[in-house]
Amino acid sequence: MSVRAAIVSFPGSNCEQDCERVLRGLGAEVVRVWHDATDLGGCDLVVLPGGFAHGDYLRPGAIARFSPVMQAVADHAASGGLVAGICNGFQVLCEAGLLPGALRRNAGLRFICRWVEVRVDNADTALTARAGPGQVLRLPINHFEGNYHVDASTLEAMRRRGRVTLRYVDNPNGSLDAIAGICNDAGNVFGLMPHPERACDPLLGSGDGALLFGSLLDAARGRVAV
């Protein structure tokens, strides 16, 4: 049985088509959900793609968190459903309070589109299970606000509980602790700044992104089986 993935788009999202192509290629059934929807159509996995939701006006994610669909996303997460926010989607999840911390402007105060290496910090999560512990993945980043920040005590708790999923090998944006990806305390809501959908085809530079999407689909399938 194929996993049903909902891709949530806001006005100004722009990576929804790429995510859809990749998820379909990996065998998922994809439904597109517009930001004004109030339910997610019974999906197993919710993906918030990259882009500039509501133009990133005010600050990234600040307006998107008020879109009607975010209540449904929160409900899905509260019931243990899988949620993954990529880049702008990560920013939205932080603004919505579904993930701790915030993403500030890059330390260099410039937009960066670049291939980077990230190391899997915890391979025992729904996002990283197909990768080995400490495995280095080649993924692209594409953001102006990817500089992860969180208060010291939360960071300490996140570290202790293995809630940091991915860390930059060579920190490109000033992120605290070189954090590239995290998950919530319950381990079902994920945020990451790199774009795995852009790294699912060796012709484009890497196939490592398929490990992350594949892990998410495995986990969703596990839930489907239950």
Binding site: Q17, R21, V22, R110, F111, N142, E197, R198, L204
Partner: peptide, 28 residues
Amino acid sequence: IWEQYDHMIFLGTVQGPGADAAVIRLPG
């Protein structure tokens, strides 16, 4: 210059900035 530009969206950039010519695979 070109690192400030998103040069990868649409999953078609087989060769991007810094090459002699950009090679853009059409979607699908």
